[in-house]
Design a protein around this nucleic acid. Structure first.
Lengths: 350, 350
DNA sequence: CTGAAAGCGCTTACAG
DNA sequence: CTGAAAGCGCTTACAG
């Protein structure tokens, strides 16, 4: 039977290092702060010996005094939409790279969000990043009170407060409309996801407005209700009940589009793109797989993450920053296999 | 311009509560420890007032003394394999439910693993859960030294040390072989992923051994190298160079299987299951989608997570627990659309 | 530029 | 059962 050693691990502390070096603890401490007043040679000696002894300042003791924790709380709901794992890993990696640590809270069920936030808040994160969760305004208040500003990523908070980093989804919706119309589609439909999400609302309105601007009827709206494969699939099935021609579909996002396509294929025997074209949004990895070949509009994720990280850094310095939201234009549509040009007799179709 | 209030947020502390209640800080503190010696009525009063004032013990100050942090560090690599987001959300949710907090470290590149672990360790997590990352033995040692036992989830550490929670992949490999053989397949192939992963090695060996036990030739092994869609896809392409008949394929996991199938379909024009059957492993959500209809062997995730959480709880109590690894039998194979029965002339095939 | 001292918000022997 | 005191590992005015 394998036995682990007694875990009597004594971490090296400032005191140990001070004694070892014959200096005061104050000096040791200062060596770790670039702005502190300390002789350069002294600092070098301390840092060198610290590395040798494996000393690292205890972050708990530090934050007890500094009131800064270097912790960013990340709140996510279920990661069913592949967009989020992709974003999360990348975002966390970047945050780590600038020395911030991520405390994760999963709000599986909407009612648990408040609880998850509460838990996070007890660790006094310098800030919160909210991913794919509609935060109740109650929870928002708690954060403010807890001194932790919230950054909403890829979604604006319902009340428009807080910091927001998002893609310009209105432009996105317009792009989708323009592409479909340019390629000859005349009977448009929007598959709507979570109605309260700003992403959904904006894509919808951009799409519909643009279609009308260009002389088409207002697109039909089919309600999927959520940003999931299943919701898209069921929406596809609901196409059967529609008594109107549709030749071009824009879905709230990729995973909905993928579900939608499979729904109409399996349930209704429709073919994509032969019978109708479908455009998604996000450009998740699997959109490019041969099994999906989804035409879609990519989010400018690189820019969005850069903005998030630098905002995080700013906020860690100065939590009293005035709230602001930044929008980035989506990237140009990528044409794959779920769309194709159509032509109607002159005069348009009916 | 919206202006946020000066963030002069003073959290309620023991002292405040003590003064408010006319008690000593010791008493306040004790109220929060079920085992502490304190009069029940006193405790109730304290807890009630604490709730009213929104007091929560500061976890940093607490762990400075108790040396317990209630933090579990979770190390993941990229979450490209959809299996992991699914596991992670669920696991984190369960950990939260028992009062543990998750600090996340992403080790995007293998070389960054040590760094990620180091970062995590500075927060003195009670334990680490390692997901999908081959931890260097150096990093393992660091954890031991840091007093943080490691639980390897769905993977054993290379040296067999540490705590392990995994599916019995040898049995899994045998199940795959039995199914394929029972349905008439005679020319088997295994698509191998990351060679150093215990999951891969065990599935391979169970599969091959069982095939041989039942009188077949040793399955061919095709090297995909990684647990990714792309690796599977490329492996599929490599089938072109194979000068041997293959009728039944077992892939290291679902995402490899999905990539493999698309590779042979797109690149070689082979049809599944008409030309050959493919079996995966994990039963990720998309395996059930109409686009994939993947026959696969599900992992007993519920059991595995239960075991992880209860082990975590034990370890939080007593970090000196003797190391152990638990294996759970996979669930029965789910037959979907990527496999079908074959029959050969009596006497077997060549 | 460096050190001694106070204090961050807690817990826990130690008395009573 | 309760309180006063020491101390966890740090940082930061304050002197010098």
């Amino acid at each position: 039977m394998r036995q682990r050693k007694k875990p009597e691990i004594r971490r090296v502390t400032v005191k140990d290092l001070a004694k070892d070096l014959g200096m005061s603890v104050s000096t040791i401490s200062r060596a770790f702060y670039p702005d502190a007043v300390i002789a350069e040679p002294t600092r070098r000696i301390v840092l060198k010996r610290a590395a040798e002894l494996g000393y690292r300042p205890n972050p708990f003791a530090q934050s007890l005094i500094t009131k800064r924790t270097q912790i960013v709380g990340v709140v996510v709901s279920d990661l069913t939409n592949p967009f989020y794992p992709e974003v999360m890993t990348e975002l966390v990696a970047r945050l780590q790279a600038v020395g911030m640590n991520v405390m994760l809270a999963v709000a599986n069920e909407p009612e648990k969000t408040d609880e998850a936030v509460e838990l996070l808040l007890s660790y006094q994160p310098d800030l919160l990043v909210v991913l794919a969760v509609p935060l109740s305004s109650h929870a928002r208040d708690k954060c403010e009170q807890g001194g932790a500003p919230c950054i909403f990523f890829n979604r604006l908070s319902a009340d428009g407060l807080g910091f927001g980093i998002t893609c310009d989804n209105i432009i996105g919706g317009r792009q989708a409309a323009d592409f479909l119309i340019d390629t000859g589609h005349r009977h448009l439909l929007y598959v709507s996801a979570f109605p309260d999400a700003s992403t959904n609302a904006e894509r919808l309105s951009g799409f519909c407005k643009r279609a009308q601007e260009r002389g088409l009827a207002r697109p039909i709206i089919l309600d999927a209700g959520f940003f999931t494969y299943e919701a898209g699939y069921d929406a596809g099935l609901k196409m059967a009940g529609l008594n109107q021609t549709v030749d071009g579909v824009f879905c709230a996002n990729d995973i909905v589009a993928i579900g939608f396509i499979e729904g109409i294929q399996e349930g209704l025997g429709l073919r994509v793109p032969e019978d109708l074209s479908v455009v998604g949004f996000d450009d998740i990895t699997m959109a490019g797989w041969p099994s999906h070949k989804l035409t879609t509009i990519p989010q400018p994720l690189g820019e969005m993450m850069d903005a998030t990280v630098s905002l995080a850094l700013e906020l860690a310095q100065d939590p009293s920053l005035a709230t602001r939201t930044r929008r980035f234009a989506p990237l140009p549509l990528i044409e794959r296999g779920t769309t194709r040009s159509r032509s109607y007799a002159t005069g348009g179709a009916t």
